[in-house]
């Protein structure tokens, strides 16, 4: 969001008039966005967590999969506050798991994968869902076919579908992209392609109603082409359900990935993710609550942050609210 605002004037100063206009619009949006406290907080947290997982491993240079049996089952530093007897070492500030793997490094490394999977799969699902939803809602001719296709994908059982995808594509992808990227592509595509249907149906429902609104009829009567109709009049008005879908989709993708790993369809076991760490630690929850709390908080706060950003953006992009 910030890039066009800061770069555009610097890049093309001579054409002053149109830029002035664009600039003020983006500035308005940013100004409106800044008034939304939740959105600013969300953006801040999202930047923090992104830096945490992206740059964290460079600073806290510990291999997340390296076992260290002598230092297993360490507690995090803050347990010393109420229990001076706790097993603790500064080598493992947030403690270690039953094989002595470092929890902090695990969170960073796992976050990289979870965030990457979550964002990519969510974007894929939202783009596909919006595209199909808008097309089906706007063009009556293809509505039936697209919606029956949606029904079909909704009916497919997820697990056998994934097993088949693994069977058909895993070796090819592994050979082309290597084991880790290959499985990443497979998981992202699998999650993305099985979670766009709700977005598609919601968008379609809204488009069906919007199509009959006065402003659309007015635009049509002056001969606006379909493409312009969709981009100028339809899409901006279905933005808020899309934002909700995106937020929920992010959480859904992160959690689905953990369920897949649990079923043996996800990443290899030496490849931590937030969801998988959470799942594996459930049985140790009573003795070592930190092992579930940290990954759980990371997932929830990331989703919450994205939700607030979505709220803020929606308000900022809505000219009716911005004007007030």
């Amino acid at each position: 969001m910030t890039d066009p605002m800061t770069n555009m004037p610097a890049m093309s100063p001579p054409r002053a008039v149109p830029i002035e206009k664009a600039r003020s619009q983006w500035r308005d949006i940013w100004a409106q966005f800044r008034t939304h406290k939740g959105a600013v907080w969300g953006l801040g947290f999202l930047i923090f967590i992104t830096l945490f997982v992206a740059i964290g491993p460079l600073i806290w240079d510990v291999d997340a999969t390296k076992t260290d049996i002598r230092n297993k089952n360490m507690r995090p530093f803050y347990t010393l506050l109420w229990d001076s007897e706790a097993r603790f070492t500064w080598v493992k500030p947030l403690g270690s798991d039953n094989l002595g793997r470092d929890v902090l490094a695990n969170l960073m490394q796992g976050g990289r994968t979870s965030m990457a999977v979550g964002w990519t799969a969510m974007i894929l699902a939202v783009v596909v869902g919006t595209l199909i939803g808008v097309l089906a809602g706007f063009f009556k001719r293809i509505d039936g076919a697209l919606m029956r296709f949606t029904d079909l994908v909704l009916s497919l059982p997820l697990l056998p579908l994934l097993l088949v995808m693994m069977l058909l594509f895993r070796d090819t992808l592994r050979a082309t992209f290597g084991p880790e990227t290959g499985i990443f592509i497979l998981i992202v595509v699998a999650i993305g392609l099985t979670s766009w249907m709700q977005t598609a149906r919601i968008v379609r429902g809204d488009v069906l109603a919007l199509k009959e609104r006065e402003f659309v009829l007015a635009a049509r009567s002056i001969g606006t082409p379909s493409r312009r109709m969709i981009s100028r009049h339809i899409l901006p008005n279905v933005l808020s359900p899309i934002m909700v879908s995106a937020t929920l989709g992010l959480a859904n993708a992160i959690i689905t990935e953990s369920a897949l790993s649990f079923l043996g369809l996800g990443f290899p076991s030496d490849f931590p993710t937030w969801g998988k760490t959470l799942f594996d630690s459930i049985q140790y929850m009573e003795e070592y609550p930190e092992r579930v709390i940290w990954p759980g908080l990371c997932i929830s706060f990331t989703v919450l942050a994205v939700n607030y950003i979505g709220d803020g953006l929606r308000d900022a992009l809505d000219p009716r609210i911005r004007g007030q």
């Binding site: 959480a251 459930i282 990331t302 989703v303």
Partner: peptide, 22 residues
């Protein structure tokens, strides 16, 4: 409401369920 619903959606049921049981 936002806080609760976001946590309700993003924390998997395999976790909330076990917490409730405990």
């Amino acid at each position: 409401g936002t806080l609760i619903s976001m946590i309700g959606f993003s924390v998997p049921t395999f976790f909330t369920g076990v917490v409730l049981i405990l």
